[in-house]
Amino acid sequence: MIRALIADDEALARRLIVEYLHAHGDISVAAECDNGLEAARLIGTLQPDLVFLDIQMPKLTGLEVLEATGRRHGVVFTTAYDQHALQAFDLHAVDYLLKPFSQARFDAALKRARALLSAPQAALEPLVTEAATRLERIVIRDREQIHIVPVEKIDYIEAQDDYVAIHAEGRSYLKNQRLSELEEKLDRRAFLRVHRSYLINLSCVQAIERSGKDNHVARLRGGASVPISRAGYERIREAM
Rank of each mutant, 00 (worst) to 15 (best):
L97H: 03
D214Y: 07
L199N: 06
D54M: 05
A39F: 05
V217E: 15
T133R: 15
L12T: 11
V51K: 06
H22D: 08
A113Q: 02
H73A: 13
V205R: 10
L21C: 02
R114N: 09
Q206C: 13
Q145L: 14
R141Q: 10
N201T: 11
T78E: 08
K59R: 12
I236D: 07
I157N: 06
A108G: 05
C204W: 11
R112K: 14
P48S: 05
R134L: 07
M240K: 09
E38L: 05
R71L: 15
H167T: 08
T129M: 15
R15Q: 07
A23L: 01
K111L: 10
A39Q: 02
K175Q: 04
I236Y: 11
I17C: 04
L5G: 14
R196I: 08
V164L: 01
K59N: 05
A108K: 10
E64G: 01
I200K: 12
D9H: 02
S229F: 04
E32G: 02
V65L: 10
L46C: 10
G170I: 04
T69W: 08
A239I: 10
K99D: 06
Q145K: 15
N176P: 03
L46P: 06
G232N: 09
L16G: 02
Q56D: 08
H147W: 04
A31M: 04
V151L: 11
A40W: 02
R114L: 03
K111W: 11
I166W: 00
A159E: 01
